[in-house]
């Protein structure tokens, strides 16, 4: 990998699980040093996408490339440059972290023991007990540590903050930012905790039933998804409030509230002139997610940390 092209590339990915199309035509690219958040409701194809990317599942259509290699045939050298945190528990939970480390180290051609030791101290990984004797959060922290220990160039993390407390999550986030900003590591992760995604991701993709609903820079997404509240002046009708990219609309007591995903500042003056007073509210990622994925109460509840 020369470092000039995308580190991770997905083109037109399709994957069938039984008769269900779990991923439908996903295309994305990750530049070196970027942090990419893959979000979506449960069953929207996030984990399937990661597995296709890593060669754990074979795509039914399209192509995935990691570090320049086709994910269907990743070389040993390439695989050793990828760190993966699965949603499933690490195997062999009867071993303590030092023993696991010795085992894992023997599998890698290059291994920086001093760095690993420092990382363990920094992450506060419990070293004295086997994984199965740890609490869920401790075990998750140890598993993330094991994914980071080989110093991978690409980190693929499937719901890394599952079951860990707020302080540990904050430490994870700082660590991820350091890995990407200071060491140029590329991070691709899924999560349901959208406030955390908002803190670290450069780009996000929102998957809905396997298809990309949104794929954009996080800042650009937040700039264009807005809630627009229009207080209608006398003589103006709700139908006069016309906005491109309308996602949802409510009308009550002469006030029209529209969520749009194609907002631009130029629209405000035109709308005010035609309909009345206009208030434009920004949405955080969680609110935008709920609007863009259909606004179901269940989804909103589910995504709350």
């Amino acid at each position: 990998m020369s470092g000039t092209g995308p580190v991770v590339e997905v083109r037109g990915l399709r994957k069938l699980l039984g008769s269900t199309e779990a991923v439908r035509g996903l295309t994305l690219a990750l530049e070196p040093g970027s942090v990419f958040g893959l979000i979506g409701p449960n069953g929207s194809g996030k984990t399937t996408t990661l597995k296709c990317l890593l060669g754990l599942l074979r795509p039914d259509g399209g192509e995935c490339r990691v570090l320049g290699e086709d994910s269907r045939a990743l070389s040993r050298g390439c695989r050793q440059r990828i760190g993966y945190l699965s949603e499933k528990p690490f195997p062999w939970q009867d071993l303590a972290v030092p023993d696991l480390l010795r085992f894992v180290a023997s599998l890698f051609e290059r291994w920086d023991a001093a760095r690993v030791e420092a990382l363990a101290r920094r992450m506060g990984v419990a070293l004295d007990r086997p994984l199965q004797a740890m609490s869920f959060g401790e075990r998750r922290r140890a598993e993330l540590f094991l994914a980071l220990a080989p110093d991978p160039e690409v980190l693929v993390l499937d719901d890394p903050w599952l079951g860990v407390d707020a302080r540990v999550r904050r430490d994870f986030l700082l660590l991820l930012l350091e890995e990407s900003r200071e060491r140029g590591r590329t991070v691709l992760f899924t999560s349901h905790i959208l406030t955390d995604v908002e803190k670290v991701a450069d780009r996000v993709a929102i998957l809905v039933e396997g298809a990309p609903r949104v794929l954009d820079d996080l800042d650009a997404l937040k700039a264009r998804v807005r809630r627009v509240v229009v207080e209608l002046r006398p003589g103006a009708a709700p139908e006069d409030v016309v906005l491109p990219g309308e996602v949802s609309r409510t009308v009550a007591d002469g006030v029209v509230t529209v969520v749009t995903e194609a907002w631009s500042p130029a629209l405000e003056a035109r709308l005010a002139e035609r309909c009345g007073r206009v208030v434009v509210e920004p949405l955080n990622l969680e609110a935008a997610f709920i609007e863009l994925t259909g606004g179901s109460p269940a989804a909103a509840e589910e995504e709350s940390p």
């Binding site: 045939a73 695989r79 990828i82 993966y84 499933k88 195997p91």
Partner: peptide, 11 residues
Amino acid sequence: PTDWEALLLPS
């Protein structure tokens, strides 16, 4: 294989 093994092993 577990996901972890599958990533480390050649195929």
